[in-house]
Design a protein around this nucleic acid. Structure first.
Lengths: 325, 325
DNA sequence: CTGAAAGCGCTAACAG
DNA sequence: CTGTTAGCGCTTTCAG
């Protein structure tokens, strides 16, 4: 194991000089800097994270609490995690995985000083973790938008605006009766933040536009077709579906493609663009920029840690996906 | 922040006594132990991870390199990660996420002393990381089974045996001509370890049993049906499909369900049981125990770190899923 | 059974 | 522009 002292000796300088070369926190002569950098490379030196962390009281590690729960779309979660990881790495930070569903785990990691801040996914509208997080001694960022998040930093996709955007588009297209097929029942039952907001925006804007609209939970997988059947049975005049369930989308589209028992039904999807754009039968896609969301969350957390960012919500505005993408 | 010195003072003992109470590395009188534990609870003391790690030269953190690559089934990856995380937490370890596709990242984390060992997922048959890992100063466990892994600890599902088991079962059922629809083309093109082995076992056992067998890559999602069409067009006598692609399974099953243009085609799936058991049209499932795999991997890594385990492969034997599960 | 004290490798005053 | 040094909080000898 090579230490900072080895490097200092090899370069013929003191250890503080080596430290300052690494941190850039004071000016070093060109020549000295080069000697030190040379020595570091020659000895293939890596600073010891624990020593650095003990002395500096910071870790360069972000905690991430990601859900592994029933009904949660794993693609979206993975993309969020990937985005957060990429952003963190770009700023020389690592990510420590915290067990889900466990506010105590976050607190443990925080108090042991293992992380400089935490990023929390899959937040519910009335999330029990929110209170605990506000008490925490370290910065926290939620990806999601709970009700009582006044003192917290939140980053999310603007699901309510997406719901409005969808209703407006469907109204423009001349539809009269439409339906939102949303997240799986378990997710809605938990009042996951995004599901509540999407529904609210969609139903409000539908009403404002004079549309007849309904909103239903929709199971992932083949079971989705039953919901389609039920909607068309109860409201046979339905001519468009707004689908927010990536794992149900292909089944819904397949059920409707050239089906003889229904009139033409248009499908508008809310989904990561690359997952929905090439599903046959889907005519329009509002992109759910999952990776961007993760990146923004990580960025917000880094800013909060740096003290350049206070409480408040940052919402990513919805956009239609570019079909050529 | 409360330190070990605060606890020692509150309990009226020395800091080494507090340390030994925590580690259990020497015998402490009942009474002293209770006083110390009391003080720790009263002050809600958490030992500082970095200080502990600096002094003890170990971190209680496992590095995890998980893939986020085209075609990889995210459900399976998530389950493996969940299993590893659960096992790690059960042994008081945490998990640091390492960026995928980046051997340098593993080395960086290792040399900075951020992790006690690394767990590597999605290993390819000839994986460039294998050589680098063997050089590494810390224990590594692969989930997967590359060709040249002599000096490494490997844990995997026995895909080759699963291939054989599938062929045997189909032969027992009286089929004559069968086909394996496997991982997506990108995965097979990378020669991901499991895909190669599954095919080998399936084709060999098919031949031994006198079956006519083919093996093809199969894209995930709706595109899977085209492969089914192609197989049935080229080999119209095919009466059974062995499917190893969770994301294609429902589409394949739907394509075949009561299709007028084909004879009855039986579907045998290799998939996490809970994902495949309730897909209509799937008659039999060989379970892919993803969460167990992650847990075994983590366990193997902990054992390797503890020095109670040397190089070698541990393969989990295939089993048919219990349909009542 | 318990204490005292020497580090672990680094950062950041303080002192030129 | 550079060096000296006092910690950071803990583990673990060494000494009772």
């Amino acid at each position: 194991m090579t230490t900072i002292a080895d490097v200092a000796q090899a370069a013929g300088v003191s250890i503080s000089t080596v430290s300052y070369v690494m941190s850039g926190k004071r000016t070093i002569s060109q020549e000295t800097r080069e000697r030190v950098e040379r020595a570091m490379a020659d000895l293939s030196y890596s600073p010891q994270a624990s020593a650095r962390s003990l002395a500096s009281r910071s870790t360069s590690v972000l905690g991430l609490q990601a859900p592994i729960r029933a009904g949660v779309d794993v693609h979206v979660v993975m993309q969020i995690v990937a985005g957060a990881l990429k952003e963190a790495r770009a700023h020389h930070h690592d990510i420590l995985l915290l067990t889900s569903d466990d506010a105590a785990g976050v607190e443990r990691a925080a108090r042991a000083g293992m992380v400089d801040g935490v990023l929390i996914l899959d937040v519910e509208t009335s999330d029990p973790r929110v209170g605990a997080l506000a008490e925490l001694s370290i910065p926290a960022v939620l990806i999601g938008l709970p009700d009582a998040a006044d003192d917290l930093v939140c980053v999310d996709f603007d699901f309510e605006a997406a719901g409005r955007l969808a209703a407006q588009r469907l109204a423009e297209r001349g539809h009269q009766s439409v339906a939102l097929l949303g997240a799986p029942p378990q997710v809605q039952a938990r009042h996951t933040s995004y599901s509540d907001r999407l529904m609210r925006g969609f139903l409000a804007a539908s009403e404002a536009a004079g549309l007849t609209a309904r909103a239903l939970p929709c199971p992932s997988g083949p079971g989705a077709t039953e919901v389609v059947d039920a909607v068309l049975a109860e409201s046979p005049d339905t001519t468009a579906l707004f689908v927010h369930n990536e794992a149900a989308l292909p089944f819904i589209a397949a059920r409707l493609m050239g089906a003889a028992d229904t009139g033409p039904v248009e499908i508008l999807a809310l989904s990561p663009a690359e997952l929905a754009l090439h599903v046959p039968g889907v005519s329009d896609v509002i992109d759910l920029p999952a990776e961007t969301l993760g990146a923004r969350g990580a960025r917000a957390l880094l800013d909060a840690i740096g003290g350049t960012r206070g409480p408040g919500a940052e919402l990513i505005a919805p956009r239609f996906a570019d079909p050529t993408g």
